[in-house]
């Protein structure tokens, strides 16, 4: 399964980057979403996946009786999801404000601050 996921995640990265390279700012922000999702999945997958063994300690016991899924990457991904949520909400609103100010969905019209 990990191999299949690795390929899928590769595709997610590819789509994310393709979207980010478009001229539309909306596509850019969708690309960013895909990208952060892909990264989260990558952490989750690379640490190894396990079916049907959530990292919970049964009631009344001190430790799980059998092997459970690695809880640490789950915690990391949870943190990463939340952070990505914050950042992406910001980005989404930024895109919208940028559109209101520049009045164009075209990134090529947003290059006045350089050069």
């Amino acid at each position: 399964m990990e191999s299949l996921m690795a390929v899928s995640i590769g595709v997610l990265f590819a789509t994310a980057i393709y979207m980010m390279l478009r001229r539309s700012i909306v596509k850019l922000v969708i690309g960013l979403m895909l990208l952060s999702n892909a990264a989260n999945l990558l952490i989750f997958t690379t640490a190894g996946m396990r079916r049907g063994a959530p990292p919970l300690v049964p009631e009344g016991l001190g430790a799980p009786t059998s092997a459970v899924a690695d809880p640490l990457p789950q915690a990391l991904v949870l943190t990463a999801i939340v952070i990505a949520f914050g950042v992406l909400s910001f980005a989404v609103v930024l895109v919208r404000r940028a559109w209101e100010v520049v009045r164009a969905d075209d990134l090529d019209q947003m290059k006045d601050t350089d050069t």
Partner: peptide
């Protein structure tokens, strides 16, 4: 091309770590 290369690179990296 850029997107595919990047995606492919990520897949390769993951596979070799795995």
């Amino acid at each position: 091309v850029v997107a595919t290369l990047t995606g492919g690179m990520i897949t390769l990296l993951m596979l070799s770590v795995l």
